[in-house]
């Protein structure tokens, strides 16, 4: 269940717009921030808040890369999967991440710290190859830099 406060503040925002549907993405992100991902229960709660059917929420939730319908790690690493990054060493970057974290693309480390996901071009071609960890961009990357970043995040966790 969503905390009453969050629910009330979302309901207030929704009440202030003409078409509740237009807030769907914002509400999904807010609820996702609370749960860490958008669970089935969360989808149903979002639907309820907006007066939509769970299907209508699911249609959008599953369309967007940054809405997670499965449990994800504390740090979600989105590896840019587009042309410029491909030219600048994307493949070895993915290999390195997979080897280092001992998971495949789309998986989460057993300690629940890292999730590895691909993402369409994030617009940081000038910093290719680039990745996005919890909305922060890193690049251009080398194996060493990645090790550094991972170590830092592990230390912070």
């Amino acid at each position: 269940m969503l905390p009453t406060e969050l629910r009330a503040s979302l309901a207030e925002q929704i009440a202030s717009v003409d078409h509740p549907r237009e807030l769907l993405v914002d509400v999904m992100f807010a609820v996702q921030d609370h749960y860490g991902y958008l669970s089935d229960q969360a989808v149903e709660e979002v639907a309820d808040l907006l007066g939509m059917t769970p299907l209508e929420v699911e249609e959008l939730a599953t369309f967007y890369t940054f809405v997670y319908r499965h449990r994800v790690g504390k740090y979600v690493i989105h590896v840019c999967d587009s042309v410029i990054c491909w030219m600048d060493g994307h493949e070895s970057l993915v290999e390195h991440l997979e080897r280092k974290l001992e998971i495949k693309m789309g998986e989460t480390t057993p300690d629940g710290l890292f999730t590895l996901l691909p993402v369409c071009c994030i617009g940081y071609c000038d910093r290719a190859p680039a990745i996005l960890i919890n909305k922060k961009v890193y690049g251009p990357l080398t194996p060493e830099k990645i090790d550094e970043i991972l170590a830092k995040l592990q230390g912070e966790a």
Binding site: T53, L55, E56, T62, F63
Partner: peptide
């Protein structure tokens, strides 16, 4: 409103 298109 209970059948539609999901995923991408």
């Amino acid at each position: 409103r209970d059948l539609g298109v999901m995923q991408s």
